[in-house]
Write a protein that binds this DNA or RNA. Structure first.
Lengths: 194, 194, 194, 194
DNA sequence: AATGAATGAGGGTTCATTCAT
DNA sequence: GATGAATGAACCCTCATTCAT
């Protein structure tokens, strides 16, 4: 990749980052191209030169985010820490990723743009699920996870918690309950039997 | 309340219902006043006569929804069915409420309109929490709930699941895992120890 | 039609007239909605309230024009003047109609909007052709028109001349040749044989 | 002209040809510089290097077209075929020129760019009129043309027909009437008297 | 000489809101 | 009290043109 290409990529990333930040803070519909342009210090038209429509920009922002997330997730999985700690980090990782995408971004694409939704779904399936399966098998071997439970169900569970907790308003009110919530995840509302 | 007042109230309810339906189907931002007016069979200006801005309308729709939900929730709590069944219904009640508010509606107000958010929060606290506390005490007495867990944490947990599952895309993919998910809720990912 | 309706119709006509004038002077593409709005003394949005898109406005302007033309044409046909005079007026009628549509308007719809084109074509066929046939039969009876020529061919011919001459630049340069051109129409380039 | 110059001329011609083709197919306003650049396989800026504005490009395209047309016309005039055949070819020559300029191109310049219009007018006068005069004199000598008619009027007539018939939509519907139309041109609507 | 990148100005369109009846 | 009509502001997007390499 020559200097031209590299600078182009860099600018593209700038725009994506600006858009991602704004989308996360205000939601997708509320953010205009003009605002993104201002934040990225380019003209509106430049955005159109890189991404041919707002629709496409949203799509690309999403891909960008997914890849960022995946990298983050991968780090946790291969880290040298106990299994429960990994789960915890995965769920309560907001502060560390610094920027987690606003839930709306996800919903948005799922609803409005079914096709992209599917594409992303499959991208997710290909990359994230294997990683997670790996993690769960580790958990089962170490006796932290009930082998009778399907991986799908647990994946859903953890994803739900993770997604839900990312939200600013939620996160704040959750902190004091961290311990209890982790306990519920591991032992259910019936509680530990020992 | 005389006939005049009553008709006025009815018209107001019509508008709220129209708005709620549309908000749930398309999200808030995508629904214009003009569409609501059309669906409610009134003129746009009439909407402004009752709710003085779109902002206010959204607010009122939210109150309207909260109250509807509360009624629904109350029915479950006082029903003559076993505790676990109550929890299950609460979480998987989509099909029965027929119309659950779109998640976005909640997020929207929480984010955009912090003040209303608080108001609603308190309204929720006043009405829903006592009811839920009542329910959980029942659960603890019957040995279904670990008495060491805080009610807040469990409330959060159940609300999270309920909210999350309301979403159309989620609901569909969840159905086959109902049993596992319920198990995780009760016994955690460690599983039943017996 | 009550007063409401009547004022609405009047305003609609104002907009159509403004658009027609501008289209004729500058062509369709060059005229923006904003310019039409200014000329008609309304806001842009008002135009959208009446005609739901520029596309639709163009269509309606065209219909409006066709009907105006038809009325004008009808007057000539039923007038109590000799046949050759009728033909002449039909072809050189620019100054009398005051406002003849710019050729581009016609071409535009024919090319861009095939469907409307057809609709208009049929409207034309239904209304204008019968009238013209009537006129030609009169001409044939009076010995002014060769009975061996098909009406279609003559209609085409006269329409061509009429259309072509409407153009501002053409009209100016034609005036001195009026007599010759009429002669060619009646006797051809071979000339009168007597 | 050295190799350098020659390559430069060739590139210029490429651009002109690309523009002409596109203008004829879609009209002038609808064709963007970017499209012309793509079709000519050059960058937009290159176009600006050769023709310093779109305005100028249109002008040059027009000149280019006029010259092409002239050459074509000249071939007909000096061909060894009977006079009526020449007139016919001139009028119905669409298929043979393969590419006749879209009527709009003519109108466009006439209207928008009065100055160029004049320049072109004079260019036309200088080149085409002498040729046509020559042709008509031939016709008059052979008894095909009434000597009382002014050349201007006939020139107008033939040009009108030629222009009008070039249009795609017109051409199609005209074909069955070719004979009649030619007859009208030669003998008028009164018909041949013999 | 040629190009990729960038942009100001403007176009069609929608929306929440107000005016006038 | 209810409505049809009207609008300013904003949005997404395109285009002719210029800048920088």
């Amino acid at each position: 990749m020559d200097g031209f290409q590299r600078r182009r990529e860099q600018k593209k990333r700038n725009i994506l980052e600006a858009a991602l930040t704004l989308f996360m803070e205000y939601g997708i519909q509320k953010v205009s191209i003009s605002e993104i342009a201002k934040k990225a210090n380019v003209s509106q038209v430049t955005i159109y030169n890189y991404f041919e429509s707002k629709h496409q920009l949203i799509h690309d922002v999403f891909i960008y985010y997914i890849e960022k997330s995946y990298t983050h997730f991968e780090k946790i999985v291969i880290a040298d820490i106990p299994f429960p700690e990994k789960i915890k980090q995965f769920i309560f990782s907001k502060k560390e990723t610094a920027k987690q995408i606003h839930e709306e971004l996800y919903q948005h694409l799922m609803k409005e743009y079914a096709q992209e939704g599917n594409y992303i779904e499959s991208l997710y399936a290909q990359k994230v699920i294997p990683l997670f399966t790996h993690l769960l098998n580790e958990g089962k071997e170490q006796g932290f996870v009930d082998p009778n439970l399907s991986n799908e169900a647990i994946l859903f569970y953890v994803k739900m918690m993770s997604d839900y907790i990312q939200r600013e308003e939620v996160y704040q009110s959750i902190l004091p309950m961290t311990e209890d919530i982790t306990n519920i995840l591991f032992y259910g509302i019936v509680g530990k039997k020992d």
